[in-house]
């Protein structure tokens, strides 16, 4: 079950090497529930350079949110969770850090943007306080300078009339504005890595695009790396340098977005692509949904986990778990885990 990926073979995105920021090495997160041990993340490895964006796509239950939190260190080995593997952030294993060290990372070097802006802000706390408290904690600013900086941050994320907003409460703002505040909170101390867990799922479509544009702009300005987690391939498509498709706790395909759209090798990725509704199609065409449901991660099936739902599954699929291997079509930077890939990735 061990991945035979090592740091040398995990591909980078091809950008000029600004230095590797994050290396996730065979991370497995097991959550102990009353019904058994849930293998939420079951062997994930990838790297991320400074300033790079990786999109992690998967349906509910694929383990992508758990992965995000494991990378952050919000999940660590404890009474309810067991984690193996390493998360090397800036040369140090996040999973081996103590609580105090983690707290000095969170909000300062790693920031997290949450899904639901309605609930990510404290309803009885002013917007300004949300920002100033993290500024004061990590940068040691005084009250006035922190307020100034908070106003600058609101301006940075595109909120008009920032000074007035500082004294408002979350319920006085719209959903899109609240999410901008959440982003401002995550960026306040200019982290090197931003983990965005479904940042646009709870928003209107028009607002979604604005938020994603905002993230892109901020990334250019601040030079931070982004892990963009979503169930929506469309959201990730134009924004990420690389995409990793996750299913049942494992990465089943990873490459740059263009290669993925040009020719995905894993049947699941192909199904995801097909499921995106296109404007060119005639109306009243059935949406190409994927039949079936994700497997039970307490007792995952032997062999390929997508096999029960796969149109191309054969006997060996059900017996041997496929490992990631490079594509012969689009080059060594395109990896996929399938015995019988589509679009002819390999013999």
């Amino acid at each position: 079950m061990t991945s035979n990926q090592t740091l040398e073979t995990v591909p980078d995105s091809g950008r000029p090497d600004r230095g590797q920021l994050l290396a996730v090495e065979d991370v497995r997160t097991t959550i102990h529930t009353a019904r058994g041990d849930l293998k939420a993340v079951d062997g994930v490895s990838f790297t991320l350079d400074r300033g790079e964006t990786i999109g992690i796509v998967g349906e509910s239950g694929s383990g992508k949110s758990v992965l995000g939190r494991t990378i952050m260190g919000l999940h660590t080995t404890g009474p309810t969770t067991t984690i193996s593997g390493r998360v090397m952030f800036d040369g140090r294993d996040v999973q081996s850090l103590g609580v105090k060290e983690l707290r000095s990372l969170w909000g300062a070097r790693i920031g997290m943007v949450f899904q639901d802006p309605m609930t990510a802000l404290n309803p009885v706390k002013k917007i300004g306080t949300h920002l100033t408290e993290t500024l004061r904690k990590h940068q040691g600013l005084g009250r006035q300078p922190a307020r100034e900086r908070a106003a600058e941050l609101l301006d940075l994320v595109g909120i008009p009339d920032p000074r007035r907003r500082l004294d408002q409460y979350p319920h006085e703002m719209s959903g899109g504005m609240r999410q901008r505040v959440v982003i401002a909170m995550a960026l306040a101390n200019e982290p090197a890595l931003l983990i965005a867990d479904e940042p646009t799922t709870a928003l209107d479509v028009t607002v979604q695009r604005q938020i994603l544009d905002l993230l892109g702009t901020l990334q250019d300005e601040l030079g931070m790396a982004i892990i963009l987690i979503s169930h929506n391939l469309g959201v990730v498509a134009g924004r990420a340098d690389r995409v990793a498709v996750m299913y049942a706790g494992r990465i089943v395909e990873t490459t740059d977005a263009r290669s993925l759209f040009a020719g995905a090798h894993h049947p699941y990725s192909e199904a995801l692509l097909r499921a995106i509704p296109r404007l060119q199609e005639p109306p009243h065409v059935r949406l190409a949904a994927i039949d079936g449901a994700p497997p039970n991660m307490i007792t995952p099936p032997i062999g390929c986990r997508f096999a029960p739902r796969c149109a191309y599954a054969q006997d060996d699929c059900r017996q041997v778990l496929p490992e990631l291997r490079p594509s012969s079509e689009s080059g060594p930077r395109h990896l996929f885990a399938c015995h019988h890939p589509v679009n002819r990735g390999d013999a």
Partner: peptide, 26 residues
Amino acid sequence: QDDFILAAKAKGMGPKHIMFSDALRP
């Protein structure tokens, strides 16, 4: 259990701060 508590934790705020500043009032 609310989300904003998790968000506060992800900002690196310590448990005492979270308890007093975030949890108590609501």
